[in-house]
Simulated assay, not measured.
Amino acid sequence: MRIVIAEDHPLFRSGVRNLLRTTDDLEVVGEAASGEEALELVKQLQPDLVLMDIRMPGINGIEATRLIKEKHPAIEVLILTMFRDDQSVFTAMRVGAKGYVLKDSDEDELLQSIRVVGSGGAVFSSDIAGRMMHYFSQGPTVPAEDPAFAELTKRELEILERIAEGDSNAQIAAHLHISNKTVANYVSNILNKLQVTDRNAAKRLVQKSRED
Score class of each variant (00 low, 15 high):
165 E>W: 12
84 R>G: 05
75 I>K: 02
49 L>P: 01
112 Q>M: 08
178 I>H: 06
63 E>L: 09
81 T>D: 12
29 V>I: 15
130 G>E: 14
74 A>S: 15
161 E>I: 04
90 F>Q: 08
6 A>C: 13
106 D>V: 12
192 N>S: 14
51 L>A: 07
50 V>E: 00
147 P>T: 02
169 N>A: 15
178 I>W: 11
6 A>W: 13
175 H>F: 15
107 E>P: 14
82 M>E: 13
10 P>W: 04
85 D>F: 11
91 T>S: 06
121 G>P: 11
191 L>A: 04
147 P>G: 02
129 A>W: 06
166 G>V: 09
67 L>F: 01
146 D>A: 06
189 N>I: 07
1 M>G: 02
31 E>K: 00
163 I>T: 03
36 E>A: 05
107 E>N: 14
85 D>Q: 05
11 L>A: 07
131 R>K: 13
82 M>D: 11
150 A>T: 05
40 E>F: 07
97 A>N: 01
59 I>K: 00
110 L>D: 08
105 S>L: 02
7 E>N: 03
124 F>E: 01
114 I>Y: 09
147 P>R: 00
125 S>A: 04
58 G>W: 09
149 F>G: 07
160 L>F: 12
100 Y>C: 07
51 L>M: 12
105 S>F: 04
211 E>D: 11
86 D>A: 08
139 G>W: 01
173 A>L: 07
209 S>E: 10
174 A>R: 10
79 I>H: 05
140 P>I: 10
208 K>V: 15
44 Q>A: 09
38 A>K: 06
26 L>T: 00
117 V>N: 03
76 E>P: 02
74 A>V: 14
153 T>C: 14
86 D>C: 01
144 A>P: 06
204 R>M: 12
47 P>R: 03
130 G>N: 13
55 R>H: 09
91 T>M: 07
94 R>T: 10
17 R>Q: 03
183 V>D: 09
154 K>D: 15
163 I>S: 03
144 A>M: 09
131 R>H: 13
202 A>Y: 12
151 E>Y: 06
13 R>D: 12
19 L>G: 05
49 L>C: 03
